[in-house]
């Protein structure tokens, strides 16, 4: 019982406090790749604090506009509680893999509701693009995870990782890890797939009207999703090393997440943005890889 509560607090703290640090890492990395000096590592914290103090601008009189960021951030927090970050997920007794995926989806829904609630055409445009990407990408996320489910016969995250630890690397899981990793770019809103949030093209998409605390919550959600998805990826596909001592495991996890985030940042730095229809076609191609992974999983390899 106490473990659960303390783990819950740890997860929440990681997500709220530590997450912006990773964003700082990405920005610094991007600057270095672009031969710039770049902002200090603590810059995202400063941004968030600044935004939290700014005026709250109400547009359109629709209370959904103010409620959507709260919904998004709240869903992300619940997702954090369901994610194993080195140790077992604190809320693992109340929700399994699908619940996690759906709470992340609920976060996206929140963003989309916020985008359409004001009537700004850029907002709606961004929402539409976000939805199209989600349509082709969600299935890849779930598909990769299904490979793990097929092997471990359960949707419970702890069962999956303990199975994988016991059985060692498996071909189908290795294949399935690739699409999941590629999809990380989409979920975290990083180039080449930051289409919904395209600053230059559509003025920020769903976030165009968000300002002040609302924008802070949106940005914080993205930061949090970085840790959550990276932790999920690592726990399912690369669960080693595991010592069994909880604080050590959490630290190991943080280091692994740093590596993943760094990779994400490098990819973000060297790629341009691609168009939505190109993205759709690209990911439909990724579906094929996933089909192979599932097929291999079914025959037990």
């Amino acid at each position: 019982m106490t473990t659960t509560i303390s783990l819950a607090i740890v997860n929440l703290l990681l997500v709220i406090i530590v997450a912006p640090f990773y964003e700082g890492v990405i920005r610094k990395l991007k600057a270095v790749v672009h031969s710039r000096k770049g902002p200090p590592l603590r810059q995202p914290y400063l941004d968030l604090l600044k935004l939290l103090g700014k005026e709250r601008l109400e547009v359109g009189g629709n209370p959904l506009f103010s409620f959507a960021p709260v919904l998004t951030f709240g869903s992300v927090l619940v997702a954090a509680l369901l994610t194993p970050m080195g140790a077992s997920p604190p809320l693992g007794f109340a929700g399994d893999l699908i619940v996690l995926v759906y709470f992340l989806a609920l976060a996206s829904v929140g963003i989309m509701l916020g985008g359409t609630s004001t009537g700004n055409p850029y907002g709606a445009l961004g929402t539409a693009r976000e939805m199209m990407l989600a349509m082709v990408v969600e299935i890849i996320v779930v598909g990769s995870l299904i490979v793990a489910v097929i092997h471990s016969h359960s949707f419970d995250l702890m069962h999956i990782s303990s199975w994988y630890r016991e059985s060692g690397p498996v071909l189908s899981m290795v294949i399935a890890a690739i699409p999941f990793f590629l999809v990380l770019q989409v979920q975290l809103g990083k180039l080449p797939f930051d289409i919904p949030d395209a600053d230059q093209e559509i003025m920020g998409g769903p976030f165009i009207e968000a300002g002040g605390p609302s924008l802070a919550l949106y940005k914080w959600s993205y930061f949090a999703k970085q840790i959550i998805l990276a932790s999920l990826f690592l726990e399912v596909f690369i669960p080693w090393p595991k010592t069994g001592v909880i604080p050590v495991d959490i630290l190991i996890n943080l280091v692994k997440v740093l590596v993943v985030i760094a990779l994400v940042g490098v990819i973000d730095a060297v790629n341009p943005r691609i168009r939505i229809d190109q993205a759709v076609r690209y990911f439909i191609g990724i579906w094929v890889v996933l089909v192979f992974a599932i097929a291999f999983a079914l025959i037990g390899v």
Binding site: E55, R56, G60, L81, L91, A94, E209
Partner: peptide, 29 residues
Amino acid sequence: MGLLVFGGCLMVAVIISRVGSPESRSVPI
């Protein structure tokens, strides 16, 4: 349990958003 936790998280989000106690202003699109 899920609802309880979700509600809790929503509260956290609201608290965070109010922490700077900003003023509100209504603007057009």
